[in-house]
Design a protein around this nucleic acid. Structure first.
Length: 99
DNA sequence: GGTCCGGCACCAT
DNA sequence: GATGGTGCCGGAC
């Protein structure tokens, strides 16, 4: 299976209301330092509707970027019950989904 | 808290 | 093929 496919599949494991980080996701598919690669792959993701790339945030707790805009991403997360303050995830440790 | 550089897959030369 | 630039980052300084 392609690496990107693996990433997408892993990401689908993240339940609604939970999030993960680029680093975690990268490690989950075997890339120790592939955070940036993950970001690029997310940006190129072929199924934007199916792939919940808005559930992936930066390891410092910030929301991070998003192909359709960070506000959109924040809104989506908020709708899923995740609280955000000034672009930062509140109660991060409690929201992170670990594979 | 801001900047810099490392690191990795992808795509266009 | 090989090479260089790039991107929803991360960690160090």
């Amino acid at each position: 299976m392609n690496l990107d496919k693996k990433i997408y599949k892993k990401l689908l494991e993240v339940p609604k209301g939970k999030i993960t980080t680029y680093g975690e996701l990268a490690k989950a598919v075997g890339m120790k330092n592939g955070q940036r690669a993950v970001g690029k792959i997310m940006n190129k993701n072929p199924f934007p509707v199916i792939i919940p790339c808005h559930r992936v945030v930066k390891s410092d707790g910030k929301v991070g970027g998003y192909a359709y805009g960070e506000e959109i991403k924040s809104s989506m997360l908020t709708l899923e019950g995740i609280q955000i303050k000034n672009g930062k995830i509140l109660d991060l440790e409690n929201r992170i989904y670990r594979f």
